[in-house]
Design a binder for these strands. Sequence first.
DNA 1: GGCTGGCACTCGCATGCGCCGAGTGCCAGG
DNA 2: CCTGGCACTCGGCGCATGCGAGTGCCAGCC
Lengths: 338, 338
Amino acid sequence: MLSERRLQVLRAIVQDYVGTEEPVGSKALTERHSLGVSPATVRNDMAALEDEGYIAQPHTSAGRIPTDKGYRLFVDKLAEVKPLTAPERRAIQNFLDGAVDLDDVVARTVRLLAQLTRQVAVVQYPSLTRSTVRHVELLSLAPARVMLVLITDTGRVEQRMVDCPAPFGESSLADLRARLNSRVAGRRFTDVPQLVQDLPEAFEAEDRGTVQTVLSTLLETLVEQTEERLMIGGTANLTRFGHDFPLTIRPVLEALEEQVVLLKLLGEAKDSGMTVRIGHEIAHEGLNSTSVVSVGYGSGGEAVAKLGVVGPTRMDYPGTMGAVRAVARYVGQILAES
Amino acid sequence: MLSERRLQVLRAIVQDYVGTEEPVGSKALTERHSLGVSPATVRNDMAALEDEGYIAQPHTSAGRIPTDKGYRLFVDKLAEVKPLTAPERRAIQNFLDGAVDLDDVVARTVRLLAQLTRQVAVVQYPSLTRSTVRHVELLSLAPARVMLVLITDTGRVEQRMVDCPAPFGESSLADLRARLNSRVAGRRFTDVPQLVQDLPEAFEAEDRGTVQTVLSTLLETLVEQTEERLMIGGTANLTRFGHDFPLTIRPVLEALEEQVVLLKLLGEAKDSGMTVRIGHEIAHEGLNSTSVVSVGYGSGGEAVAKLGVVGPTRMDYPGTMGAVRAVARYVGQILAES
DNA sequence: GGCTGGCACTCGCATGCGCCGAGTGCCAGG
DNA sequence: CCTGGCACTCGGCGCATGCGAGTGCCAGCC
């Protein structure tokens, strides 16, 4: 177990390194933090911290930098989430309040997060899996062509074209529309398959094929859209990463374009509370010199999706966590209102 | 006027520089291209080309590189669009054929373009301005709350919530829906305002306020969505730009996030045919060491939106132009089919 | 036992220097 | 008008040097 002072030393190292982006030495530490001991003592502590794997030297005879393990300890034990200032909160609210639709909410959230944290922001669209159906609309575009429109409680709209096996009358369509809505409106997506299972039986034989086709398209839409989409912003902030450039930034940009990777990452995070994944804790190569701070957000008590920030492991964790948490809260409010 | 041979020299310089990314000297030129003259002669030609501003030396006693003006001449007079190979064409078709909806078409197009050109791809969503209305749907969510869903002929769907000044019965809603659709279905967005102008008059006094509200929301949607959206991909390719990194890539990433800038850029391009804007021809600072190749695409003969590629001025113009043109064609086909 | 000042040592990094070679401009001759 | 020759320029690279931040260790002090 590390003594209290050694923890202080670790905290000081993390803070200084995050601030200066340069390895920090014992002398500088005692000057910038009132630890009450001399550099020599700090050196001993540093040696101990290094033995335990919390810090490392990039080169012999250079200062120390925190390791992933060091950041982990810092985040778990030493950091306190830094709340945003009042003006920042107001700015968030004002900015998000102007949104006109879901796309706009997501787009604005991304910009906001990127600006607040000066890092790359990632916002997942509210997931269909946990959403409920607000309405299903069927439109007849041609005798044997129907457009299916699915509206969710989070304001998301999905539409699909359905080619029917046989012409389908307006009245049958209205009938199907009514029956469908009475069964699924307000229900969770995951429950839909079961709820509509026996619907075709209520129709004339000649219409059953079409009903079946429409239903399968609906179910397909649910499944397809379960693989959620996301929006990314603030990639220009990657250029602030460091000096050893192309090497660092390239794989990150590539990973960011692979939305699958990000979705997986967000999926692995806890549903409630904030998740911080640091460096090599992230399985995906290319992101393992970055950290990801993510949190769920939702219109009610429950999270419908996640959002977060991707940045260098050397990031301002307290500040970033504060911004992420605050933004998630406001987005949740906005979604609840709309 | 430049002699034929000098044009050949310019062409050779552009080709070599694009290939090697290094200033090209007179000796190397004569070795790699059979110009039929000696290096000394080429040197004279180069001096002339430099006087005219088509090429420049990064440093005294280094080779020459083309200027923006040089690339311009190359593109206008010397380059021939390189058609794609048959396998490439097949790959495009296969890849795009798998798309399930408009978002997916756009997303796939972006990936495709980015991969083919190894540059940053930009695809504009089909514009509402030039589209026609396929259907307007009105859903009653609560007595005084209506959801307006607008479906375009390009498969795009927009929805808005409308808070009505007074409760609005199902039958009135159905009436409005029917009247609205009979007037605007199949019509161009730009014509809609005029077409619905006198609609409220057909309703009872008590419903007129609501009808008016719904109509203004519809018109608002048309106007708002005229500012188009776009999708960007392949930003990781920026890392291949060059050596002088952070300086180059940063402003480009920033500009790419400012969708307004890109939309303006695409908007300035010709509606038909391919547009190439080179370096300082692009007004926006930050993009003026890049070139943009763009072209309109559409489901019919008419362009409904544009797509293109952003890359270094030192790009393979013939190849890029070929890829952009081919992709635009196939996307047009896909849109026409759906 | 833990803290401190002192001291020798290690290296990374910046600086300066000299060389090399690609590339140029110019000129005289074909 | 083209060509070979020639002197010149200058950026880049390798190498040696000096500096300084930072370390580890030790002896002494509280």
